[in-house]
C-alpha cells in the first residue's frame, strides 16, 4: 500500500521561475491496485511518480509504503519495494551489458550485489524461460548487448526485469510513448499479464487515452499539481471513452 500525505513539491523556490509541480496531493493506493494516471503535460504526473520512486524528494508531506515512512529514503534504497520502467527505453537497461547481465542485476534489485559470479546454468535457463514468454525470439540472444535491440524489445525486457526479484510496487512512466503501435501492444499486454499474475501495486502514466480506458482498475486525472478526478473500478468501467476524451477537450 502506498500512502501519500499532503505531498507538495516546489522547484526553484523563491526564484522568478518558481514552479509548484505538486500542490497538496493526498492519495492512498491499495495493494494490487492498478492506477492509471492521466493529465496534460506539466500537470505533475511524472513528478508524483518520481516522488513515489524517491528520485525527487517532496518539499512537504510524507511517503509511506505499508507502515514504513520512506520519505527520506533515496531511490536506490526504495528499490526494495519499487521497480520502474522509464519513458526512455534507454533508461531502464545498461546498453553495453548483455541481456543476461542486465537480468542478473535485475534479479538482485532488492539484494546485495556480492563478490560472487551469479550467472550459472540454472540462472540462464530461468532467464531464457522468462524471455520466451514475450514471444519475440530473444531467448536465443542472451549474450547479445542489450543496446543492439530495438526500443520496443528493450522496453519489454525492462518490464520482465522488474519481476525478476520481489516486487511490491511497479511504476510505469509512459512505457510505450517511444514505441510503434505493435511494440506498444506487446509491452502493455505483457505488463497487464504480469500485474495480474503477481498482484503488483501499479501506477501507470499514459497519454494514450485508449490505454487509460482499457487498462487498470482506478483512474486518476491530474491538473496543475492536484488530483482533480479519482474514479474507482466501478466508475471507471462505466466511464465511456467519449466522456474521457471530453476531459481534455
Amino acid at each position: 500500500m502506498i500512502t501519500l500525505r499532503n505531498i507538495q513539491k516546489t522547484f526553484n523556490r523563491g526564484q522568478a521561475n518558481e514552479i509548484s509541480a505538486l500542490r497538496s496531493v493526498d492519495l492512498t493506493i491499495k495493494d494490487a491496485e492498478f492506477v492509471v494516471l492521466v493529465g496534460a503535460n506539466g500537470s505533475g504526473k511524472t513528478t508524483l511518480l518520481n516522488v513515489i520512486a524517491g528520485a525527487i524528494l517532496p518539499s512537504e508531506g510524507r511517503v509511506i509504503f505499508d507502515q514504513e515512512d520512506v520519505t527520506l529514503l533515496p531511490e536506490h534504497q526504495r528499490s526494495r519495494w519499487v521497480a520502474r520502467v522509464f519513458q526512455n527505453p534507454l533508461g531502464g537497461t545498461a546498453p553495453d551489458l548483455s541481456i543476461l547481465d542486465n537480468f542478473r542485476l535485475a534479479a538482485l534489485r532488492t539484494q546485495k550485489k556480492g563478490l560472487r559470479i551469479g550467472i550459472n546454468q540454472a540462472f540462464k535457463a530461468k532467464v531464457k524461460d522468462r524471455i520466451a514468454l514475450l514471444g519475440l525470439g530473444l531467448e536465443n540472444k542472451l549474450q547479445q548487448p542489450i543496446g543492439s535491440l530495438s526500443g520496443g524489445q528493450r522496453q519489454a525486457l525492462t518490464l520482465l526485469m522488474c519481476t525478476m526479484d520481489q516486487t511490491d510496487i511497479l511504476l510505469l512512466d509512459e512505457p510505450t510513448a517511444a514505441l510503434d503501435p505493435k511494440s506498444a501492444e506487446i509491452v502493455m499486454g505483457t505488463a497487464e499479464n504480469l500485474i495480474k499474475e503477481l498482484k503488483l501495486t501499479t501506477v501507470l502514466i499514459t497519454h494514450n487515452l485508449q490505454d487509460a480506458h482499457r487498462y487498470g482498475n482506478r483512474l486518476i486525472q491530474m491538473a496543475e499539481g492536484q488530483v482533480i478526478r479519482d474514479l474507482n473500478q466501478a466508475e471507471k468501467e462505466n466511464l465511456k471513452r467519449e466522456e474521457m476524451f471530453a476531459w481534455f477537450g
Binding site: A53, A55, E75, H76, S79, V82, A83, R84, F86, L90, G91, G92, T93, A94, P95, D96, L97, D101, N102, R104, L105, A106, L108, R109, K113, G114, L115, R116, I117, G118
Partner: peptide, 20 residues
C-alpha cells in the same frame, strides 16, 4: 561477479542502476 556487473552498469546507465 554480481558486484562487477553493478560497477559496469553504473557507467552505462545511472538511471537503471539507481532503480536496481
Amino acid at each position: 561477479t554480481d558486484f562487477g556487473l553493478a560497477m559496469r552498469a553504473t557507467g552505462n546507465s545511472e538511471s537503471m542502476t539507481r532503480a536496481l
